[in-house]
Design a protein around this nucleic acid. Structure first.
Length: 587
DNA sequence: AGAAAGATGAACGGTTTG
DNA sequence: CAAACCGTTCATCTTTCT
């Protein structure tokens, strides 16, 4: 905000006014319709907590979130009416200019997020370099620089990266503390690229580096202008295809698909991102926008195995000449679990299981159902059938005896997802953790089908950067495809999951090198650069970031992409973008 | 034995889509 | 309106540590 008054800075970098406005308007336009929470979320991370408010107060919160005092916002809305957000913004900007003070940014982290790891880590880190009281209410007194750092840290940039870029950004960020997180991320990437260029260029030539840096920044701004234009022309949100077969599945449809990738999306490296298809509105639009405007491929794994799994995949892989893993897994419940056939009543017409989740049905529930069924000798009345079937679908119950239902065993889940038997067994993992790890994983046959095109491209094997690896779905998929794994850099926060992958790595006699990290925050620019240099570049950057705050089963914190866990998507983007930037310069 | 940490069981709606 | 959904929280039981 207040960018119009910052002419003094234009001697360094040509911030043209058009871009200033478009960046301000971008989240605004999506917010004014109140249909795209993803857009506004980039600017104010705490927005989700206001989602229940009526539209008027939501509008107020939106502008307060942008940094304007609440009184001024109320006044501006009164003057302009609720409908015209653009003129409200203009009025607010006029107020700010008159007062000759930059708007106060709302603290990015609200009380709901005060316990998040980011928050605590970040506060730890800035307290090293600056005076900091432990009183949380003092967030209000953070300097603009600290607030911007906080925003960037929330997005997954390390404090070091953000701080370096901000130092280079200089006064611009002080004048515009909150208006343009987008712009700052552009700046960060340009800075990272310039840093990568530093790496290649001799040190005694400072001028070309600066030119390079400015050119990168300009390219980024141009891309965003393009994105803006596309959004305003075609503002309809992403729809899920029906049938959900993406760019094709093995058996179904002999139809051939074609697509042309945006320039910015093309590899190397290839990338592959996964998350739940049924996310809150706007989430996939945001993901698509960050991942170089690549159209997500929505696929239901029920076309690959006996269980449904509706997922979206954003990737820049070729889509011709895919092939499935062999042998083809059982496609129906009866084939997958033959022992249930004997007890399966004719009125239970399910042929596919629903999505395999992290929790299983309780014994109390199956017992209640059994008692309800025992009242009837032959077929129960429709009412009872409906009750039983609803519970069966909700909890993925299968018939294991007369009137007797049970949740799937962990090894059955393993099989359905395409993992080797006992993949998650042993190593001291508890039964509940096993279900949890499996429920959070890829479906191997589905992912392998998409990755199969890599086999011809990399006969000698690939270097893999695997983020949020979990129990190693990506690694197992590639291995089962017969694609050798040269070096795998894997990031996974759960110790039991890391142990599972390490165990599998040894069991399968991998020839390559497995390097694991605990936290994506460890992968900052320097570390990535060092890894790329020592490994010789990554061929594939793969990852499914946490879905906790996106998934429909979450009754408490379905906060969208800004939720505590799901915000790690921004780390996927950050790291992918770093890899692209660094590798792009080495070619 | 008692505390502390870990594992299990059970109950808990709402959003989105067609 | 139906149908589906990579989940969280709390109480209680179990195991491990001191």
């Amino acid at each position: 905000m207040g960018g119009n008054a910052s002419g003094e800075e234009s001697d360094n970098i040509d911030w043209d006014t058009e871009d200033e406005l478009e960046i301000q308007n971008f989240p605004l336009s999506s917010c004014s319709t109140l249909t795209n929470p993803g857009g506004e979320a980039i600017v104010c991370a705490g927005e989700a907590s206001f989602s229940a408010s009526p539209s008027h107060s939501k509008l107020i919160h939106h502008f307060v979130g942008m940094g304007f005092p609440e009184k001024l916002v109320a006044k501006a809305i009164e003057e302009n009416g609720e409908g015209n957000t653009e003129s409200i913004l203009e009025t607010l900007l006029t107020y700010s200019a008159l007062e000759n003070s930059p708007p106060q940014q709302k603290p990015v982290i609200d009380s709901d997020h005060s316990s998040s790891d980011y928050y605590e880590n970040f506060l730890d880190e800035i307290s090293d370099s600056d005076s900091w009281s432990e009183d949380e209410e003092n967030t209000e007194s953070l300097s603009d620089k600290e607030k911007t750092l906080l925003s960037l840290a929330k997005m997954g940039y390390t404090v070091e990266e953000a701080s370096i870029a901000m130092d280079r950004c200089g006064a611009y960020l002080i004048i515009c503390p909150d208006a343009s997180i987008d712009e700052i991320t552009d700046f960060l990437c340009a800075a990272q690229m310039a840093k990568a260029a530093d790496y290649l260029l001799p040190d005694d030539e400072p001028k070309p580096k600066r030119k390079f840096f400015e050119r990168e920044l300009w390219k980024r701004k141009k891309q965003r202008r393009y994105e803006k234009r596309m959004m305003s022309e075609d503002s309809e949100t992403i729809r899920l295809p029906k049938p959900m077969i993406g760019f094709g599945v093995p058996m179904e449809s002999s139809q051939t698909f074609h697509r042309t990738l945006p320039e910015a999306a093309m590899g190397p490296p290839y990338f592959y991102y996964e998350n739940v298809a049924l996310a809150p509105k706007g989430v996939w639009d945001t993901i698509k926008r960050f991942l170089y405007d690549v159209e997500p491929e929505f696929v239901d794994s029920k076309y690959f195995c006996a269980a449904a799994r509706k997922r979206g995949y954003v990737h820049n892989l070729p889509i011709d000449n895919r092939f499935p893993l062999l042998p083809l897994p059982p496609l129906t419940i009866h084939e997958a679990l033959p022992l249930t056939r004997k007890w399966w009543p004719s009125w239970d017409t399910r042929t596919k299981l629903n999505c395999l989740q992290t929790c299983i049905g309780s014994a109390k529930l199956t017992d209640r159902i059994r008692k309800a069924l025992e009242d009837w000798d032959g077929e129960p009345p429709l009412r009872v059938q409906k009750y039983v079937l609803d519970e069966c679908r909700k909890w993925n119950l299968v018939w294991v005896g007369r009137n007797k239902l049970a949740p799937l065993e962990a090894d059955e889940v393993e099989m359905l997802l395409g993992f080797p038997r006992n993949h998650t067994r042993g190593g001291g993992i508890s039964r509940t953790d096993r279900y949890k790890s499996l429920g959070n994983s890829f479906q191997i046959d589905t992912v392998a089908y998409h990755l199969s095109v890599l086999k011809d491209l990399y006969p000698g094997g690939i270097n893999l950067l695997s983020l949020f690896s979990g129990i190693g779905g990506a690694e197992v998929s590639l291995h089962r495809l017969g694609i050798p794994l040269k070096t795998v850099v894997s990031v996974e926060i759960s110790e039991v999951n890391r142990n599972i992958v390490r165990g599998w790595w040894e069991q399968t006699n991998q020839k390559g090198n497995l390097i694991d990290f605990t936290d994506v925050q460890q992968l900052d620019g320097d570390r990535i650069e060092q890894l790329i240099h020592s490994v010789g570049g990554f061929d594939l950057v793969i990852g499914g970031s946490p879905c906790n705050n996106l998934a429909g089963s979450n009754r408490h914190h379905r906060d969208g992409l800004e939720g505590k866990e799901s915000a790690l998507f921004y780390d996927y983007f950050r790291i992918l973008d770093l890899v692209k930037c660094i590798m792009g310069r080495q070619q």
